[in-house]
Amino acid sequence: MSSLKAFTVAVELAERQRDAARQALKSVEAAHQAAQAQLAQIEGYALELQDRWGASEGRALAPEVMRHHYQFVGRLEHAAGLQTRVVAGQDQRVAAARAALLQAELRLSSLRKVLEQRQAEQARERQRNEQKQTDEYASQRAAARRAASHEE
């Protein structure tokens, strides 16, 4: 019976670990979505800036304005590159969290299967013991009847 208790505790622990892995995956996925949204925002702003800049192409602009514009566009491109790497890192974290959740679910499934097998084995053992007791009782009753019939 104590081995069943140990397996029950192990299953409960594995369930908590699986739940923690599931929560970690949700957290990492949320961070991934936020990083993707930030990248989309940066890229959208860069496109909007290019559209506005393209609309003013016929105008004569001071070289200083042009230099500031190109510096700003360069910074936006750099920010987009950095954010792309952040998104790639988040992709890796999501994949790792999914793998951890899968491992936790497999471990839980294995422990549950072993627990079910142990419970079934104990049930079979109890049934054999009950059958043995019933057979012994029936044998004793039959012996008592035979003894009573010999005395008569």
Rank of each mutant, 00 (worst) to 15 (best):
A31T: 10
G54I: 02
G81L: 01
F72M: 13
V94E: 05
E136H: 06
S110P: 00
Y137I: 09
E136I: 04
Q17I: 02
R118F: 03
A40L: 05
L108K: 10
G89A: 14
E105A: 11
Y70A: 02
L76T: 02
Q50G: 02
G58N: 06
E116D: 08
A21W: 02
L82Y: 02
L47T: 11
R59K: 13
S110W: 04
T84P: 00
V28M: 08
D19K: 04
A34N: 10
E57K: 14
M66E: 15
V73L: 08
A24E: 15
Q133T: 03
R18H: 10
E57T: 05
Y45M: 05
E116V: 05
G54P: 00
L101D: 04
A99I: 03
A40I: 00
R59V: 05
E116L: 12
A34H: 03
H78F: 02
A120V: 00
V94D: 05
A123M: 08
E57I: 05
P63W: 00
M66P: 09
V87F: 07
S109F: 00
T134C: 01
L49K: 10
L82G: 04
Q117L: 11
A97D: 09
R118V: 06
A99M: 01
H68D: 02
A120C: 01
E136S: 09
A80R: 06
E29I: 07
R98K: 14
Q122C: 03
L115S: 03
G44Y: 02
Q83D: 01
D91M: 14
N129S: 12
A37F: 04
G89M: 09
V94L: 06
S27R: 13
Y45D: 07
G74Q: 04
Q92G: 15
A123Q: 12
Y45G: 13
H78M: 08
A96L: 12
S110Y: 07
G44H: 04
